[in-house]
Design a protein around this nucleic acid. Sequence first.
DNA 1: TATATATTTAATAGAGTTATTAATTGAATG
DNA 2: CATTCAATTAATAACTCTATTAAATATATA
Lengths: 207, 207
Amino acid sequence: MDIKNEQSMEQAILETAERIFLEKGFALTSTTEIAREVGCNQALVHYYFRTKDNLFNTIFEQKFKMFFELVFNLEKLEELSFLDKLKHIIESHFDMVRSNSKLPLLIITEFSRRPEQLNILKEKLQAIPERLFEKLNAELDAEIVAGRIRPISLMDLIMTTVSLNISLFLLMPIAGEIISLNEIQRQFVVEHRREEHVTLILNSLRP
Amino acid sequence: MDIKNEQSMEQAILETAERIFLEKGFALTSTTEIAREVGCNQALVHYYFRTKDNLFNTIFEQKFKMFFELVFNLEKLEELSFLDKLKHIIESHFDMVRSNSKLPLLIITEFSRRPEQLNILKEKLQAIPERLFEKLNAELDAEIVAGRIRPISLMDLIMTTVSLNISLFLLMPIAGEIISLNEIQRQFVVEHRREEHVTLILNSLRP
DNA sequence: TATATATTTAATAGAGTTATTAATTGAATG
DNA sequence: CATTCAATTAATAACTCTATTAAATATATA
């Protein structure tokens, strides 16, 4: 409603669609609802994006890439020790998931229910991490050889980090409801887990 | 089709519905499809369960309870040390998630998208864990006081265990596709992570 | 201003969904 | 065997959703 002059209709549709898709997923979101919330005719959604699939993919690919690029944005950590670097990675990843807390579920559900999506993004993703991985991998190996860290693969470290960070936000709505936490208590748990994830992982690396 | 004599139609509908709901979630599953796969008329699904919601809730509640009861089925661990007990819990939980690998996603999506469900199950769930928690909690505290384990709450331990175990199966389909793992390689990763989760958690508990 | 182009809307076809109803078939029992 | 009740089906009402089309309106351009 009357956003028209502030920003383009196309943009308004994109933003509203993103919000609703993140909230309800692809299947439960209708172009009719998007139009209603934007305050425009339903046909306009199809005028700009032709199909609901198109609209979804536009948003999804953009978010998905953003998500992964943020994860692997590890510049300016040169001077840190491996463990400090790792601490920083865990915390940045945590913060990034926290500020996009509905995205992991969307990625997981849409991929497991419409797997064709994967092929589109496969090659785009395979490119990103390689350089960074090699660098970190070398450092990790050096620490292991020096006996300062137990033998472990970088892949395991990444899986652990990602698992802990995303699960917190996947489980929080359910667990918080079951054990009746209010908003402040939930934020407290989130803050506490942010520290715990670092402690847990770093502690576990001791030989 | 022609399952009719081997088991009741009602049962066949339940089982087929369960399979399809687990695969595609509530929204993407239609009673028409369930009937088609069972090999019966679509009205029959409604004859036995009246509404799609009813059918789903019947299945969902049963699975949900089963899931949680399995998790907290910790009898016959009396003679073990705390760490051995913990190892056993992590591994049992892992095995249970592995053999119900599509259930966590269903629980998470249906709860975050149709939260009314939660209230139905809230009190049923609050009852279960208390006894077990108190026992384990006491043992954990004893270990901490004795200086054999770093200070940590049982809640944190449980969250970590659940997070790691369910995330593996949530992420595997995506990650496995992106880095192109075949079925055997995936099983290998799963086996490896089963050990890693135990190592990781037990290691991290050292003071 | 006249004309072309882009944006927006109303209307609707066509497909699919849930749920109900009435009719049909099957099984069981007196 | 006839009757009763349960199981099953065919038909369909009432929706909702996506996508398209043609008409209306706004904007830009010459």
